[in-house]
Computed example of a mutant assay.
Amino acid sequence: MFAKKNLIAVAALATLAVSAQAQSSVTLYGNLDVAVAHTKNENFVDGSVTGVESSILTESFFGLKGQEDLGGGLKAIFKLEAPIAVDTGAANSNLFSKNAYVGLAGDFGTVKLGNQESLFKTAQAAYNPFGTSVLSPVQTLTGVVGTVGTVSTLDLTSSWNNTIGYESSNFGGLTFAVQHSARENSTGAYNGGATAASVNYSAGALGLSAVYGDVRSTTNAPAAVAERNRTWLLGASYDFGVVKAFAQYGQDKLESIDDKVKVWQIGAIVPVTAAGGVHASYGQAKLDDTKAKQFSLAYHHSLSKRTSAYAGLAVIDADADENQTTVAVGVRHAF
């Protein structure tokens, strides 16, 4: 009788533990990408360099995310993500500069408060074959042509501080999102405040995206110039089976110089075997008389569900004969 009671108690505790686990969860995950890379520069100060580099094909980071069931279809969520340099082990910028937020999710969509990747970053990553990495022309070239003023939202690697974000539920493949980076200082040195909105459509093989932003500053750091940037970015992809094609076009109107950063790219992923594929992209960025072009090519091969190897090439052709060629062989591990 005593043993039977003990078995009932153990079964009850096990049921409670399983129920609690179903109601809440925390997951550790990430991506580590590191390569041996050789970069040859023409008319660049640094000359040629061979070394171990991080995030060549995919962005390196680690993260924690979790949720808790609050009942009635409502969930509490959180995410902490830290970009890291695998070659040195150092955190890039602040520890959780990629994402650090808490939010609520339900039938109404998702509301998030905290540091969040910008809608521009998530859109550019989704609609080019290299995502957020060194080989992505759209990401790299906007830095090559440069910007004037506080911030260019076509710096497509950034997250927004002090942000309120909303993502809608899915309406037959159609979703929309809005973000607002709050101005947290009233002094004249802070020209802060940024707002962006996006509309996305995904159905079968087709993907479409449009993002618009009105930006002064996305951090509470002092801005050098009280500049208002009005930016938009379009993206499209279609999976034909034998090839997945990508295209992007964006502009950032810089108020202080009455000019625009213009950027575009086309790209493709071509499956070669069940485990491997060729990634290719060509893009161009222009600001006034400054123009830069980039061609990127890589072969990516899965060794297992979580580990893969790759070889890649990026060629940048900028004005004033400032050319750069990077060749890399690397490995990535997702966990």
Rank of each mutant, 00 (worst) to 15 (best):
K262E: 11
A226K: 14
K305F: 01
K293A: 08
V86T: 03
S217H: 08
D46A: 14
V278Q: 03
Q67N: 12
G63Q: 05
N200K: 11
A275N: 14
V34A: 13
I8T: 11
F130W: 00
A37Q: 14
L208R: 08
G114A: 11
E59T: 11
T163N: 03
V36Y: 12
I266Y: 03
V331W: 04
I257N: 13
L74E: 12
T153H: 12
G103S: 05
R183K: 15
E227V: 11
E53Q: 13
A3P: 01
K112T: 05
F120K: 01
S202D: 08
V272K: 08
V36N: 08
D289Q: 11
M1T: 06
G312L: 01
N323I: 12
A3K: 12
T325Q: 08
E322I: 09
A35V: 10
A292H: 04
G193H: 13
Q179K: 06
Y201W: 01
V261R: 01
G72A: 03
F108A: 03
D46G: 10
Y282W: 15
V261C: 01
Y127R: 00
V148T: 15
S296H: 02
E255P: 06
Y212D: 06
R228A: 13
S93F: 08
A20Y: 13
T307L: 13
G330E: 05
A194F: 06
S24N: 15
F78A: 06
G47I: 05
P83Q: 12
W232M: 05
T273D: 10
N115D: 01
Q248C: 01
A3H: 10
L57I: 01
N94D: 15
D259L: 06
F120L: 14
W264S: 07
S118D: 08
G149A: 13
T122Q: 04
T231D: 12
L70G: 08
G277S: 14
V215Y: 08
V272R: 04
H301M: 07
S54P: 05
A189P: 09
A245L: 11
